[in-house]
Design a protein around this nucleic acid. Structure first.
Length: 479
DNA sequence: TAGCTCGTTGGACAA
DNA sequence: TTTGTCCAACGAGCT
């Protein structure tokens, strides 16, 4: 009794409950459907499409090694593609891992109803979260809005509830006649080769994910709490794109870290786990407050973050890493060249855009969406609203990052700025994060003419900070 | 129920 | 240089 494994963002064979259900049912058709128009705001951006292409290729390789292959279809709707494959194969069941963006939920509900109406088994599984959003509620049965109590409750359910499901060791072949499009036909890769540097930093696919996880556990876990804040050092796990595409599930990550902890008393996973917790919380918020896709979680801020929507000079400087503020430029260039940015720097560039520049967070969110390989709707929207001060965060509005002080505190050696803003490489550390204050002879000795080799700041940090504070204080919410 | 405490990631300024 | 305090007011979640 043939079953379709409808593959979405669960591009792995190990610990995959949808695949496991399909295997129990009978011969499995691994089907990837490309129907981005259906996904709304969650349709992958350019950098994520690059990842998706290579991850699908990797999955196809794994499937072929086991005797199967990936079936790829592009279609106007997933439902249409599923019907075609069902008609061609006589499949009697479809299994998939859940997604949590509003458009995806609506699509899946409709698909499930139609398939069941046709007499098929249609079931969805939790393939990407530690806790389903509806499992973790306050005692009043309402969704949490504050991280700490949420995470406490989530952990109370047990992070390591079930044993991981082993990957299949062999698969039955997909029927010969069942057509599949070549991956290239999906046109996921960029026309202009801006992705040239990506391969130096990333290996999409389940194998690459495990290599990254093992590397992190070996090198990074012990010093994680302190090292994670320093963008110039490889102190973070860099698992975010692997998790987004489901090449690893968070349960597998938890399990691997717990096992490592048993053998090493220095390895304390709790800080790292709480980062997984933020990922969970972001999905929890998106599920329970679906309007946050493009509107503030708190309606009080409706209409506030739009004022300099069309300030092209500031916007252009920000996107291109030419603001004249070294840490910000380093981050934006790291993003452009690698498809990723260190988390602390994400907060700092977002703070500059939304507060100092007073450009709407939605604009920054969409830029990140297109340029991050780990772009994840729940995380991205959550992070931007958090920084802008209109999301699930109780912090006061006067928290505005100062990119100079942040640079001096967390990139004191200047490794990060020197790497991504090489024109400043010869500037002494004392001036590296504030080149506009450097004496003329220091700049000369470093081979820098401000305004020529490196921009003067496009915005006055102190004045714009005050401007943002005034704007916040003066805003009384929508009428 | 009503009250209490607390809120990932900060900055400025004074001492 | 480091440390402490303040910067609004609120509302979530617990007791």
């Amino acid at each position: 009794m043939t079953a379709i494994w409808w593959i979405r963002r669960d591009l792995r064979l190990a610990d995959n409950p949808a695949l496991a259900a399909a295997l129990l049912h009978g011969p499995v058709i691994p089907l990837y459907i490309h129907a981005p128009d259906e996904e709304g705001a969650a349709a992958p951006g350019a950098a994520a499409r690059w990842w998706l292409h290579h991850s699908l290729a990797a999955l196809d390789g794994q499937l072929r090694a086991l005797g199967s292959r990936l079936v790829v279809r592009s279609a106007a709707s997933a439902q249409a593609a599923l019907r075609e494959v069902i008609a061609a194969t006589g499949a009697e069941a479809v299994f998939w891992s859940r997604q949590y963006a509003p458009a995806q939920i609506a699509r899946d509900q409709a698909v499930k109803a139609v398939l069941r109406g046709m007499g098929l088994r249609a079931e969805s599984f939790n393939g990407s979260l530690l806790c389903e959003p509806w499992e973790v509620l306050t005692r009043e049965g309402k969704p949490y809005r504050i991280f700490t109590p949420y995470w406490k409750a989530c952990q109370g359910h047990g992070l390591d509830r079930a044993d991981p499901i082993a990957p299949p060791s062999v698969l039955l072949p997909v029927p010969r006649g069942l057509a599949s499009e070549p991956l290239q036909a999906l046109r996921l890769l960029p026309d202009i080769p801006w992705d040239a540097g990506f391969h130096d930093h990333w290996t999409p696919g389940e194998e690459g994910a495990w290599r990254r996880l093992r590397q992190f556990i070996g090198d990074g876990l012990a010093g994680y709490s302190a090292a994670r804040d320093r963008p110039g050092h490889a102190g973070t796990s860099r698992l975010s794109p692997h998790l987004h595409f489901g090449e690893l599930g968070p349960r597998q990550v938890v399990r691997a870290v717990l096992e490592a902890q048993q053998g090493d008393p220095d390895a304390d996973g709790s800080r790292f786990f709480s980062e997984l917790g933020w990922r969970e919380f972001a999905h929890h918020i998106l599920f329970h407050f679906p309007h946050t896709v493009d509107r503030p979680m708190n309606p009080r801020w409706e209409g506030f973050f739009h004022r300099h929507e069309a300030e092209p000079r500031l916007w252009q400087a920000w996107t291109r890493g030419q603001t004249g503020i070294p840490l910000v430029d380093a981050g934006m260039r790291e993003l452009w060249q690698t498809g990723w940015m260190h988390n602390r720097v994400r907060m700092i560039v977002a703070s500059l855009l939304t507060k100092n520049m007073q450009i709407g967070w939605q604009q920054g969110e969409r830029w990140f969406w297109d340029t991050l390989v780990d772009a994840d709707l729940a995380n991205n929207v959550f992070g931007w609203q958090w920084t802008a001060g209109c999301g699930a965060d109780a912090a006061p509005y006067f928290r505005i990052f100062n990119p100079v002080l942040q640079g001096e505190r967390f990139d004191g050696e200047g490794d990060y700025v020197r790497r991504w803003v090489p024109e400043l490489a010869r500037l002494p550390g004392r001036w590296l994060h504030r080149p506009w204050e450097a004496p003329a002879q220091v700049l000369r000795a470093a081979g820098i003419t401000l305004g020529m080799d490196y921009p003067r700041p496009v915005i006055d940090l102190a004045a714009s900070r005050q401007g943002a504070l005034d704007a916040f204080a003066g805003f009384r919410g929508p009428a």
